[in-house]
Design a binder for these strands. Structure first.
Length: 418
DNA sequence: TCTGGGGTCCTAGGACCC
DNA sequence: TCTGGGGTCCTAGGACCC
């Protein structure tokens, strides 16, 4: 039996989140910036119309944004995460076969629905808007790749009214002929360049390419993409996402770091956050990698990393912090101006399946109780506890100068009605 | 002065074994 | 002591996604 996928995608998600709680922003150009207010990560349609590109460094367009009265926001991840779960919860009313693909996208299986899929898509769209305030677009097709394309067209064309069903469409070839090959899902910048050099410029041309040639030049990923464009599904709906294979915490510094002391404070803070993530998912890590780097944009770049293997997989913050600091001792180089460091945890295993070591003399039960107590307090009270190793001044900490309120998750920041 | 963060999958090549 | 070849496992790096 052939499948039917719907891709529901929030429009300009971060920008729309800001608008939901601030109606004055309706019709205004909005831009949301990355950590440290570094570069543009989301734009409202009005901002796109002004020619503001995705990923552009904020300092380059400061002047033009001021001139055009663009509303600028720092990222407010707490707000976005909460809005995301509201949208996903609403969507799951329409089918339980749902895959949350990213913070602002979900694939739904609409197989076997005995109704007009376009009407059903419109109903979803209206309901999400009414219940959460979030505008979404729906693309429907036989494969995930084609659903992505349907969604793209529905977003661009006002005629579709936010929903496009390409299932068994007689004009699929015409549609694909209009899609530049670099806009196809899984075709990135490098692949697009190679394809274009071979004369393949549209999604239609790609779907008509010889499979053997694709296999040789682009491996199995390329082959899957071609099949998906032909309507043969290669990527099933993933309802129970597989367990995480790695956990990363890394940040650019709010201000450059030159001392080993500050570097250790920062890595301690990230290690602590990584520990929270581990325990939140019921996992323990067997391997830890710490890295440090100077700016990518200078000569004499310095990047280096150090990896530690734990004899017994751990989720104990004290152990993570101690080892992360030892890594910093090995990585630190005097005279370098560091811009970023990070910690990556690998070898993840469920906490209750950790292999104990023969010569392990750590009181793991005691450590576990301590972590549980810390997590309980931090979860309940907006994270008042932090480790001494994280330091007090924290000048390196990420800057969010223009952050909006956490309207939905913080008592002190609820929206007020005058 | 100012350029994000967190993931996954695939492949090539080296190490190692038989 | 010398030789060939095939298989597996692991890892680093590339490419991509949002």
């Amino acid at each position: 039996m052939k499948e039917i996928f719907a891709l529901v995608d929030c429009n300009n998600f971060y920008a729309s989140c800001e608008r939901v709680f601030n109606p004055k922003l309706e019709g205004r150009p909005i831009v949301v910036l990355s950590n440290n207010d570094g570069c543009v990560v989301a734009r409202s349609n009005e901002a796109k119309a002004l020619g503001i590109g995705m990923g552009v460094p904020a300092f380059e367009i400061e002047e033009s944004m001021r001139k055009n009265n663009v509303e600028v926001f720092s990222s407010n991840y707490t707000l976005y995460a909460d809005m995301s779960s509201r949208v996903m919860e609403t969507l799951s009313v329409f089918t339980s076969d749902i895959e949350i693909y990213s913070i602002d996208e979900a694939f739904l299986n609409l197989d076997g629905f005995n109704c007009s899929l376009t009407d059903y898509g419109r109903k979803m769209r209206q309901t999400v808007k009414q219940w959460t305030g979030m505008p979404v677009t729906v693309g429907i097709a036989r494969t995930k790749t084609l659903a992505k394309i349907a969604n793209r067209i529905a977003k661009k064309s006002t005629r579709e009214n936010g929903v496009l069903d390409l299932t068994d469409s007689s004009c699929l070839d015409m549609v694909l002929a209009e899609i530049p090959v670099e806009k196809v899902w899984t075709v990135g910048i490098k692949t697009a360049l190679k394809l274009k050099r071979a004369g393949i410029k549209t999604a239609l041309a790609l779907s008509n390419t010889d499979i053997g040639w694709i296999r040789q030049k682009f491996g199995v990923v390329g082959v899957r993409t071609v099949y998906e464009l032909r309507g043969i599904s290669c990527y099933p709906l993933e309802q129970n996402p597989p367990a995480k294979k790695s956990i990363t915490v890394s940040r650019m510094f709010g201000k450059p770091v030159e001392s080993v002391k500050e570097l250790k404070e920062a890595i301690s803070s990230y290690a602590s956050r990584a520990g929270e993530k581990l325990r939140g998912q019921g996992l323990a890590a067997g391997v830890m990698t710490v890295y440090v780097t100077t700016s990518r944009f200078i000569e004499n770049k310095y990047f280096n990393y150090n990896t530690v293997e734990f004899a017994v997989a751990t989720s104990n913050t004290i152990e993570l912090v101690r080892n992360a600091c030892r890594c910093i001792d090995r990585l630190y180089r005097k005279g370098c101006v560091f811009k970023k460091c990070g910690i990556i945890l690998n070898g993840l295993v469920p906490e209750n399946q950790v292999q104990n070591g023969l010569f392990d003399n750590v009181d793991r039960l005691k450590a576990k109780r301590l972590m549980q107590a810390v997590d309980a307090i931090n979860n309940r009270l907006n994270s008042p506890l932090q480790w001494a190793a994280e330091g007090l001044g924290q000048a390196w900490k990420v800057k969010f100068k223009r952050r909006s309120n956490r309207y939905t998750s913080c008592w002190d920041e609820l929206p007020e009605v005058a």
